[in-house]
Write a protein that binds this DNA or RNA. Sequence first.
DNA 1: ACAGATTATGCGGTTTTGTGCGAGTTAAAG
DNA 2: CTTTAACTCGCACAAAACCGCATAATCTGT
Lengths: 281, 281
Amino acid sequence: MDHQTTPAPARLPAGRKAELLAYVAEAEHATVAQLAARFEVSADTIRRDLHQLHRRGLVVRTHGGAVSVDVIGAAEKRLDVRMQIHTEEKERIGALAATLVSSNSVLMINAGTTTLSVVRHLGERRDLTIATNNLRIATEISPNIVRDLYLFGGSVRIGGQATIGPVSLQLPGGRDLQLRCDLALISVGAVSAKGGYSTSNLSEAVMMGEMMERATRVAILADSSKFTEPLFAQIAGLDRAQYLVTDAAPPSELAEALGHAGVQILVATASGQSENHKAAQ
Amino acid sequence: MDHQTTPAPARLPAGRKAELLAYVAEAEHATVAQLAARFEVSADTIRRDLHQLHRRGLVVRTHGGAVSVDVIGAAEKRLDVRMQIHTEEKERIGALAATLVSSNSVLMINAGTTTLSVVRHLGERRDLTIATNNLRIATEISPNIVRDLYLFGGSVRIGGQATIGPVSLQLPGGRDLQLRCDLALISVGAVSAKGGYSTSNLSEAVMMGEMMERATRVAILADSSKFTEPLFAQIAGLDRAQYLVTDAAPPSELAEALGHAGVQILVATASGQSENHKAAQ
DNA sequence: ACAGATTATGCGGTTTTGTGCGAGTTAAAG
DNA sequence: CTTTAACTCGCACAAAACCGCATAATCTGT
C-alpha cells in the first residue's frame, strides 16, 4: 500500500483533512511526523487536524500519531464482548457522575456504556433504589449498594443489552404506577446548541425523555465526541438537565448555550489519576 | 497461532499496546520477556503497557506476564455455571425440551437454570419470538435464532438473574396488551400428585401461572429431585400442562396421577434418547 | 471592492509523556 | 534458606504535545 498518490501541493484544509482520514483509515495507523511530511505541512497542523477528527470520532488520537477507529474497534471487539469499549474517558465520566449520587436516593439510569461505568463507581453508596432499562446493570451491580432494582420491561434490543419500552412498572396488583426519581442519569448521542440532546434511535429517545420528565434532577453524560450536530431524534432541550458530565470542556458556543440554559458543566479531568492520557490503542 | 507478522518496525506506543493486547488475547498468556523481545522494547515498557491494559480491564496482570481476560472470563463462566448446579441431567432435560420447539413459534420461558439450558439447545431453530423474565436469556441467546425477544419488567430478584412482575408488556402507546404463546416452558420447584406444580416463591408462582394460562401448550421442566412433597405456593394442577420433561421416570403414584391428568411424560435418558411414556389410564 | 472579522498555519517557548537504566525490594523456585 | 527472576521506584533524556502569538489566507457585510 503505497501512498505516493499526490505530492499534495496547494489544497484546501478540509480536503486535506479528508485525505488524512483516508490515509489513516487505510494505513490503520500513522505518525504525526509521517503525515506532516506526506502533506507538506507542519506537525502542529497535523496535530490540530487529528484533534478535530478525534473529536468527531473518526479517528483515535494517540501519542505520536493516530490509529483508525476500525482497528481499535476490531481489536477490542474481538475480546471485549462483555465489557464494551470501556475507555479511560468513559471511566472518568462515570466516576465524576457517581459523585452526584447520594445514599438512599432513587435513580433512573438509561442504557449505554457510559452510564454503566457510573454504576461501577458507586462503591460507597448504600440503599439505592434504581430503575433502568439496562440489562447489564443487573449483573454488574454490587448487591450491597442497592436496596431495590427495577427493570423496565419491553423488547430487547438485539446486540444491545437494553430493553425498549415505556418507563413504567406494573407490579402484581394490576394498575400502573406513577414513578418519580431523585436523579436521572442519561447517556445521549449528541449535545448541540441548536438541537439540544439527541440520539439516533427514536424509541430510546422516548425512553430517555420520559426518564428525564420523572426526575427531580437530570444529569446528561456525554464524552466530548458527542459535541456534534444533532442526531435523528431530539430528546429534550438543553435546559431540561441540571448537569452535563463530560471529559473535556465543550466548544464555546455550546458552553454558552448550556450556561444560558442553567446547566452546570462538570468536566472529568485526567489529573485525578496519573493514568495514561487519551484513549490509547 | 503464528506471530511472525512483523518484527515491529518503529510503532506508535498506542499501536504497540493494541498489538500487545491482540497477542495476549490470541496466545491467552504471555511473559514479559517474551513480549519485550517480540516488540523490541525494554521489559519495563512492557510492564507499563500491561499495567495500563490491566487498569482498563482488558488483560489480567500476573507475575511474569499477563493472561487474556477471555481465559479467566471463561473460567469464571464455568464456575458460574457450576454454581448453578449445572448438572448433566439438566442439560439432557434442556436438549429434550428443545425438541418441542419449532421454528417460527412463540415461547414464554420462566426463570431458572433448567429453562436456560433449553435455550442453549435451540441452535437449529429460526425466527422465534420469546417472552421471558430471565435476564440470562438476553445475554446467552444467539441472535440468529430469535426474531423478537421481550423481557417482562419488574423488580429484579437479588442474586437471581430474573425479574418479578406481571406477565404483560406495555409497549409505547400506553395500553396493556393481551399476550398469547404457542408454548410455555416452566421450570418448577416440585411436582406432586396431591399438590400439582409448586414452588417456594409466591411471586414467581404467580408469574408461572400466568405464563401457563396464556399458552396453548405447556411443558413443565423438572428433574427427578423435584418429585417431592408440594412446596409453599401452588402454581397449578397437574392437568394444566401437556408435557413433563424430566430425567427419570417419576414414582408410580405420581406417574399415574400425571397420566390421569393427560400429561405426556418425556424422559431424557443418559443415552440421549427420549422414552415416551404415555401412562395408561 | 474594500475593511474588518474569522480561520488556518507556522514558530518559539514550556510542559507532558514515553522510554530506558540502575538500585533496592519482593515474590517464586530449588 | 538461598538464589534467581521479576517487580517497584526514582531519575534522566528525548520526543511529542500544548500554549500563546504573529502572520497569511479566506470569508463577510455594506
